[in-house]
Design a protein around this nucleic acid. Sequence first.
DNA 1: TTACGCTCTGTATCAACTACAGGCTCAAGA
DNA 2: TCTTGAGCCTGTAGTTGATACAGAGCGTAA
Lengths: 141, 141
Amino acid sequence: MVRPNSPHRGLRRIDLSRQTGCNIETIRYYETIGLMPDPPRSPKGYRIYSNEHVSRLNFVMRARALGFTLDEIRGLLALVDGGRHSCAEVRDLASQHLENVREKIRDLRRVETVLATTIGQCSGTDAPDCPVIEALSDSLA
Amino acid sequence: MVRPNSPHRGLRRIDLSRQTGCNIETIRYYETIGLMPDPPRSPKGYRIYSNEHVSRLNFVMRARALGFTLDEIRGLLALVDGGRHSCAEVRDLASQHLENVREKIRDLRRVETVLATTIGQCSGTDAPDCPVIEALSDSLA
DNA sequence: TTACGCTCTGTATCAACTACAGGCTCAAGA
DNA sequence: TCTTGAGCCTGTAGTTGATACAGAGCGTAA
């Protein structure tokens, strides 16, 4: 069950997708927004990828998994591509992102507390007075 | 510096916006998607709001602040509007949402740990080898 | 030959807004 | 009375990060 060879021995879109786990449509999206380079094409216009593309896409996906926005990733890639990336510059980007993550965690913990407290006051019966609804209504404004 | 009276003594869009803190454009958005009712209009087509609208919009905004999606809020409002909302139904919606919030917190904490650890390995000098970049690159794949 | 799987492009959709453009109404000040 | 400015109206486009589909072309295996 070997897949037919790719044109010119390069990787096709589906190969890149499988090797990275990235959705096949997402790859094209990253190309149109310039996060991934436009790959060379076969005579009939088929994209031909190399291991370079695999590496870069893996980089992007790991950064996404850490919650970096595509714009932040663009910044990281620019530093890498420039070859002149200093540790300090990268660390600044990452530190800023870490601070954002921590803030989001703080926000969510506050939300968690409010929700858990309110739900805890709930009788769980068919009572028409619901503490959750009341907490959301003007009565507690 | 008293603002001119609203037509027919109702609230105008800007009044509702100021009383609730909700962006004026967002109010119209909530109306078009049916989260807020279409308000009555003045003869010239101006929206006229009442305190009912203020209450409902406050409800929506508090729920948003707790991270409920607009769809979840629609569900909560349906229960409230129906008059037949049992405590149990509401609690189920809220509990489900709480679980989502907790999962998001868990995810972010994992991200936080990875980021903090990686950044901690950073020399902060101008060194061209950056542990952050390396963590994102194939080398550690 | 024909079927199938993959490719191509362009466009639409999602959440939850936000921000215009272009035109109307209304009340107050000169 | 006229003008100015604030606020109103509608429709539409842009944001982020994808995802999905239509309609067409290509290429290989049976």
